[in-house]
Design a protein around this nucleic acid. Structure first.
Length: 893
RNA sequence: GCGGACGUGGCGGAAUGGUAGACGCAAGGGACUUAAAAUCCCUUGGGAGCAAUCCCGUGUGGGUUCGAGUCCCACCGUCCGCACCA
């Protein structure tokens, strides 16, 4: 497949009213130079106009931009340019999410320093982004790996530490026993380390945590007020936070079976109503009771060791076959001292949630049911669905988790689930064992604290010093930033900071004795949790933010990025903003007032018969009838066309934005990324689609040229009246204007594109109707000139270079980028008559055209005289006639 | 496993519960041209009919409604996230 169509030599068009083809390669850089020289996209903080902050998620500097970036940044740019035209002082900045693993991988693979690699990539990607013609304020650019940025991050870490928002605790990491290093989940493939292939183990480390769970309730509550966020993201965040109201229950242990004379086992449950359906207890492999029992039981110890070989990824843990091991411990049912329950260690119980222990009621929980069916523990249903006979209701393979009435539950029988929960809670709250109630109501969250420690070099150093005498000592403000040492080596695995000969050895700031630096760096999600605040005053050196500036600009009015960030990045940023508020760095808690999540860019895949992936640029597609066939462009070797998938390096189905911009121009790429597909859905990159966009660029250029000729005959004053042809053009232009404005506000860019096509089609039709120059009446000339001005302004946010060129061709001396958005004439949107579809019993049988203000009774009478309606009624009187004004008429026979 | 979405012509899609298929792409036919490219015009969900017109049709099966692509229930299929990828 060739992307070189743009290289066709410019061809002189024969139409007398047109000029040369539009040459994007010449025009685009020329207009960018004009914008730069006039500095029209630099934003002044002291500008008095109302503010609008539009932000796209900043990129990781991988080296080249991809089509996903083109789509994301084009959408943001359309909003920025539109809001500027609407009179706002727009902040539209760009920076780099520059810390992360790929730089270290490059260092290992290519012997290039992460810093060099990163800054080289930034330079290359910046050039690419600039070729897109984005209206960015580059003066505010920074990278998160700049010490001038992470200095403030370290300061805030220490502020958070002093404010009690940070703590150290044990948590698990993926440990590669061969490479002796910590692995990211991404680096664990089927339970094995990606380089060594060794089976990964869970290992405990003491790590730093942000106490995001302190804010769980507030983060949940405030979701209700994020009205300009997609519902799906709000739902996902609610589920992620996972608030549940339940009961803590202390089960007594049978003393004869407790390994170290433990007396009880505390569990958390949300289904205390099902207590009489309990069949077993289950402990996490990390539960202290499990550890204690394993000391005397080698088989159990082996089972626990096996459980820890799954790695730390939630998905892997929950997908693994559900296994359990009977510890021999027996728990006593809280309502029946003679009822003993076996205590298992099970691989699907998480130590992080609740108390790391549960009671299992198999009839009403699928996981528990699978578990008892495997170990032959049986089940007793205790909730009976309505309409079921309790005597015959049995559970075999499918647990029942719906509503119903209690059965087989002694004093709970006949109650609803809610009543039973209440009764159980009441009784167990009153009952005391050792001065504490046996049951205690508790609200639990699934959300865990945010572990930010990373055993890696290329991240923001955690600014503390460990002293044997003084413990953890914050690095004094005057010593910030703690910068990364440049002299590091990646020859060995593990963290280069940890094995650096000198960097970590420092005197304790408190007692002066030899101490050592923290060698963990911060999760890169920390870097991206406040960059939006830094953009408001990135020049400030003494504090992370200027309160006057940050409070004036935040929240971000429109944030745009990938759906893959729906939970973590957005939730962490919401937490971080709260933490910054608590420590005085911002004056509000919600950073993003409006959020939009765009879909991915996907593409067909191509494979040689030997299974090797082939790049689209190397493939030539032929269409024979309905059949599409692919072959290698160079050799003609046939290639199989595969499924459409997310563009990825591994499947080689990527298209390089540079190639597209070079061949067709940035405007074509931008236009195509906005066309057709709804912005929140995936868009399929196709050669035909680019060609179509490119043809439309040329068509607009011709259309504006032709219209400019016609418009020369236009009177300077608006004519008093317009003939039907001219009126039709005016109506089309103003209708497009109204609709494009509305759809940009809602980020429905695909519909904007359709409206612009419709406007252009109407103008083309009007030009087509002019077969002689004398047919151009003054009113038509005026209408065409007006329509051309509107049309150019409508596509200016999407194709800004072409728009400038067209604006100049229309005779304007100013820049279209600086024009105010045109005003709709509302009269032109209203039609005098309305055509209503007429249905009989919901099926369309006719149309009827009535005056705009016609009354329902008149419409009803007119409808009943229609032949089609009479025929359908067959002489009978209608039962009912429904008239929906301006919409439809339905005759019910 | 848990959570979230999506499903409409040959394709991308449009449609405040109110004419299903706007707009674009592709395809077919025609005009222009020595020819090609480019451009312009016409046709294009399926079926019946000379035609007017009629029947069917929004993943599948039910339901609510005067009226369902849209709302409700169940199912099937596809995609995304799951805390150390960014």
């Amino acid at each position: 497949m060739s992307f070189r169509a743009g290289f066709h030599a410019p061809i002189r068009h024969c139409h007398p009213m047109t000029t040369d083809r539009y040459n994007s390669r010449e025009a685009e850089p020329r207009w960018r130079t004009v914008w730069d020289e006039q500095g029209i996209f630099a934003t002044k903080n002291e500008d008095p106009r109302p503010k609008y902050y539009v932000l796209e998620m900043f990129p990781y500097p991988s080296g080249r931009i991809h089509m996903g970036h083109v789509r994301n940044y084009t959408m943001g740019d359309v909003v920025a340019r539109y809001k500027r035209a609407m009179g706002f002082n727009v902040l539209h900045p760009m920076g780099w999410d520059a810390f992360g693993m790929p730089a270290e991988n490059a260092a290992m693979a290519q012997k290039v320093h992460p810093k060099t690699w990163t800054y080289d990539n930034i330079a290359a990607m910046k050039k690419q982004l600039q070729s897109m013609g984005l209206s960015l304020d580059w003066a505010r650019e920074f990278a998160t790996c700049d010490p001038t940025y992470y200095k403030h991050q370290q300061k805030m870490f220490l502020d958070f530490l002093r404010a009690g928002l940070v703590e150290r605790k044990q948590s698990k990491v993926n440990w590669d026993p061969v490479d002796q290093t910590v692995l990211a989940n991404e680096q664990v493939i089927d339970g094995r380390g990606w380089r060594s292939g060794a089976l990964v183990e869970q290992r405990d480390l003491t790590q730093w945590f942000f106490r995001i769970s302190d804010y769980a309730q507030d983060l949940l509550d405030e979701i209700d007020r994020l009205e300009r966020w997609p519902d799906k993201v709000r739902t996902m965040q609610r589920n992620w936070i996972g608030r549940s109201e339940g009961l803590l229950i202390r089960f007594a242990l049978d003393p004869k079976t407790a390994p170290n004379a433990e007396t009880e086992l505390e569990i958390f449950t949300t289904r205390h109503d099902t207590l009489f359906g309990a069949k077993f207890m289950a402990l996490s492999a990390d539960h202290p009771l499990a550890t204690a029992a394993a000391r005397k039981n080698p088989a159990l110890a082996a089972f626990i060791a096996e459980c820890k070989k799954v790695g730390t990824a939630q998905e892997a843990i929950e997908k693994a076959e559900k296994l359990g091991f009977d510890t021999g411990i027996r728990a006593i049912h809280p309502f029946d001292p003679d009822w003993k329950l076996p205590v298992y260690v099970a691989n699907f119980i998480l130590m992080d949630y609740g108390t790391g222990a549960i009671f299992g009621c198999p009839a009403h929980d699928q996981r528990d049911l699978d578990f008892v069916n495997k170990y032959g523990l049986g089940n007793v249903p205790v909730v009976c669905p309505p309409g079921q006979d309790p005597k015959t209701f049995v559970i075999t393979d499918v647990a029942f988790d719906g509503d119903g009435r209690m059965i087989n539950s002694r004093f709970l029988d006949g109650m609803t689930i809610e009543e039973a929960k209440e009764e159980v809670a009441k009784r167990l709250e009153i009952e005391k064992r050792g001065n504490r109630p046996v049951g205690q109501r508790q609200v639990n969250f699934r959300l865990r604290d945010w572990g930010i420690s990373r055993q890696r070099y290329w991240g923001c150093p955690i600014p503390v010093i460990h002293c044997e005498a003084c413990g953890v000592v914050p690095v004094p403000d005057k010593d910030l930033p703690v910068t990364l040492p440049d002299d590091i080596d990646f020859d060995k695995s593990g963290n280069p900071l940890d094995r650096h000969p000198t960097w970590k050895n420092v005197p304790c700031p408190q007692c002066g004795k030899p101490a050592r630096r923290e060698t963990d760096t911060m999760d890169t999600f920390v870097d991206s949790s406040w960059y939006f605040a830094r953009f408001t005053d990135p020049w400030r050196t003494d504090t992370p933010t200027d309160r006057a500036m940050v409070d004036a600009w935040l929240p971000v009015d429109q944030y745009i990025g990938g759906i893959e960030h729906a939970i973590l990045h957005l939730l962490y940023s919401r937490f971080f903003t709260r933490a910054m508020m608590k420590t005085g760095h911002v004056g509000m808690k919600e950073p993003f007032a409006g959020l939009f999540t765009q879909g991915m860019v996907v593409h067909e895949t191509y494979r040689k018969p030997n299974g090797e992936w082939v790049m689209p640029a190397d493939v030539k597609i032929e269409t024979v009838g309905d059949q599409r066939r692919a072959a290698l462009a160079a050799t003609g070797e046939p290639v199989e066309i595969g499924s459409i998938e997310k563009m990825s390096k591994s499947k080689k189905n990527t298209v390089d934005p540079d190639d597209i911009i070079e061949s067709f121009g940035a405007d074509t790429a931008r236009w195509f990324m906005l066309s057709d597909s709804p912005p929140d859905r995936d868009v399929i990159w196709t050669e035909e689609g680019v060609q179509g966009a490119w043809r439309f660029v040329q068509r607009l250029w011709r259309l504006v040229g032709e219209t400019a000729d016609i418009g020369k005959a236009a009177p300077s004053a608006k004519p008093a009246s317009f003939e039907p042809e001219a009126l039709a053009v005016r109506k089309a232009a103003h209708k497009a204007l109204a609709r494009v404005s509305e759809d940009i506000e809602k980020l429905r860019f695909n519909r904007c594109v359709a409206h612009i096509y419709e406007c252009a089609n109407a103008m083309s039709a009007a030009i087509g109707a002019v077969d002689a120059p004398e047919k151009v009446t003054p009113d038509l000339a005026f209408a065409m000139k007006e329509a051309a001005n509107i049309l150019v302004q409508l596509f200016a946010p999407m194709m800004p270079h072409l728009a400038e060129e067209c604006w100049a061709a229309l005779g304007h001396k100013s820049l279209v980028s600086l024009q105010a958005w045109p005003k709709v004439e509302p009269d032109l949107l209203v039609e005098d008559t309305v055509t209503l579809p007429v249905q009989v019993n919901g099926k369309k049988r006719a149309d009827i055209t009535v005056a705009r203000g016609a009354g329902n009774a008149d419409i009803e009478a007119a409808v009943l005289t229609l032949d089609a309606v009479k025929k359908a009624l067959d002489g009978k009187a209608p039962k009912k006639v429904i008239v929906v004004p301006h919409r439809i008429v339905n005759v019910v026979a």
